[in-house]
Design a protein around this nucleic acid. Structure first.
Length: 466
RNA sequence: UCCCCAGUAGCUCAGUCGGUAGAGCAGGUGACUGUUAAUCACCGGGUCCGUGGUUCGAGUCCGCGCUGGGGAGCCA
């Protein structure tokens, strides 16, 4: 008799009357007056557990079944039958139940069948995937990841595996984690007294990447359409519900594309991801809508059906100036938008995702293409209600002269970027790309308010357990 | 990093005016003719975050530290 995933059983692939085996973990056990027990068995293949009906006639009913508690691992054999109870269409009438792994001390098992706070669950990150919420998040992450690859693959994009270890000490974003094999207590010294990184593993200072963008641009200018999807690292002391020291980012890069094509791609990608999620994970989304965020399904449906608002930075400033709001940070042309400003624009002014374009060059990175007005760059941010920026991107500066001027202006050492500048020397073309923060996207889709709960093992300042 | 708040049973929390500890859930035992966060009865369960101080006496008041949360900055 074959073993089946509970997802296959509950989706109707197995008809009542068939005999089968399932394997999974106990969620709850309810004993009935009739001298039988109902065991909710969960194997993670879908949101719902399968109800197993265990009768007192089972040889191990009193010795084992009546002692099953949340978390016990089971193998159950029986016949699938139409349920006479209300909560489920079918159930497994067991004729054999085997405890594969028991619970050492049920009283202190950390994932009791009761509501837990997410703060507490983070302290048991190795066990929290057994909960409804974190299990659902894991399946949502999978669906969204697969959708990213499917969408970009179908549009002719190649997945490029850019390096995790980088020597660029200024990729334009955030503080870096050093990668080193030197003795941390007593490192080799230069004559000047500094640490002698020439003796380090790579013969120079190296770091964990903060973005695959610069590397993926090199492949863009050969394969035309490329993307990265991998982990990135920021050593910033950010203590918020939207930041992680290790997070995942999707970075498409398109040759012969301008900012508008770039924004089109970002919008189409997000819509494809959320459409796929609505199609594939209705069970998990129903849970998020019921327990986490009542509006999450309608938010996703609205997002996939309505065009994103597009707005010039200058227009956004005018709207904020006329808003009649008292902002903590005053608004004028040239300032970077603060959380309160983004929130006003997305949540109050347009009420849905907003693409802001053409920012002042002073507040953006060196690689963004200078516009003809000489004071703005072809940058874009996608702002989502509730979480703020989920996409940041730009058309890249493809003109070597202009790029060099920008590097000089910002006091960046050009020689460190010689390989990047080569891309502008040899067959340079207009190109554009963006970074999509994966955890923020999962957070937006599920209504989970802290990104630490949408990544399996979160890394944040002072916290890298597990 | 800054501002604010919190830390008491396995978990979520209450604890009044400073007088040596409570509930719900979870767990154990039992009852109940199909349960759905089952119900009912009984039972076990405490480094009151740490540290120093005030006091006859501190979970409670004060200082310092640690951890967590909310917000801000930085960003995705």
């Amino acid at each position: 008799m074959s073993v089946h995933a509970i997802a296959a059983v509950l989706s109707g692939q197995i008809r009542p009357g068939n005999r089968l085996t399932v394997q999974g973990w106990v969620r709850t056990r309810r004993d009935s007056k009739a001298g039988l027990s109902f065991i909710a068995v969960h194997d993670g293949s879908c949101f719902e557990p399968l109800q197993v009906v265990a009768s007192a006639e089972l040889p191990n009913y009193r010795s084992e079944v009546l002692h099953l508690t949340a978390g016990c691992a089971l193998r159950v054999r029986g016949e699938l039958v139409v349920s006479t109870g209300k909560g489920q269409a079918v159930e497994l009438r067991a004729d054999w139940i085997e405890t594969v792994g028991g619970i050492e001390d049920p009283e202190t098992y950390p994932v009791a069948p009761k509501p837990h706070s997410f703060e507490y669950l983070r302290t048991v990150a190795h066990l929290r995937p057994r909960t409804n919420s974190i299990g659902a998040v894991a399946r949502v992450r999978h669906s969204l990841s697969q959708a990213v690859h499917r969408f970009l693959h179908e549009r002719g994009y190649f997945w490029v595996h850019t390096p995790i270890i980088t020597a660029s000490d200024c990729e334009g974003a955030g503080a870096l984690f050093r990668v080193s094999t030197l003795d941390g207590v007593n490192p080799p010294r230069t004559p000047e007294g500094g640490i002698d990184f020439a003796q380090d593993f790579f013969g120079r200072e190296t770091f964990l990447t903060v973005s695959g963008q610069l590397n993926v641009e090199a492949y863009c200018l050969a394969l035309s359409k490329v993307y990265t999807f991998g982990p990135t690292f920021r050593a910033e002391n950010s203590n918020t519900s939207r930041h992680l020291a290790e997070f995942w980012m999707i970075e498409p890069e398109t040759a012969f594309a301008d900012l508008h094509a770039n924004a089109d791609l970002a919008e189409a990608l997000l819509k494809f991801m959320f459409r796929a999620l609505l199609d594939e994970r209705a069970d998990d989304l129903a849970f998020f809508a019921q327990r986490i965020d009542k509006t999450c399904i309608q938010r996703l449906e609205r997002m996939v059906n309505a065009p994103f608002e597009r707005m010039e930075y200058g227009e956004a400033i005018r709207i904020l100036e006329k808003a009649g709001e008292t902002f903590e940070f005053p608004v004028r042309w040239g300032v970077d938008l603060q959380s309160e400003h983004e929130r006003y624009l997305t949540e109050r002014h347009v009420g849905r995702p907003l693409v802001l374009i053409n920012y002042p060059k002073e507040i953006k990175s060196f690689y963004m293409r200078l516009n003809d007005d000489g004071r703005t760059v072809a940058a874009m941010d996608v702002l989502a209600p509730g979480i703020g920026e989920i996409v940041g991107g730009s058309q890249r500066e493809e003109r070597l002269v202009v790029l060099d001027a920008r590097l000089d202006e910002m006091g960046i050492n050009k020689t460190a970027y010689n390989w990047y500048r080569d891309l502008r020397r040899y067959g340079s073309v207009p190109h554009a790309g963006f970074g999509l923060g994966f955890e923020r996207t999962v957070s937006y889709a599920t209504g989970m308010s802290n990104v630490r709960d949408v990544i399996p093992f979160p890394r944040t300042p002072r916290s890298a357990d597990f």
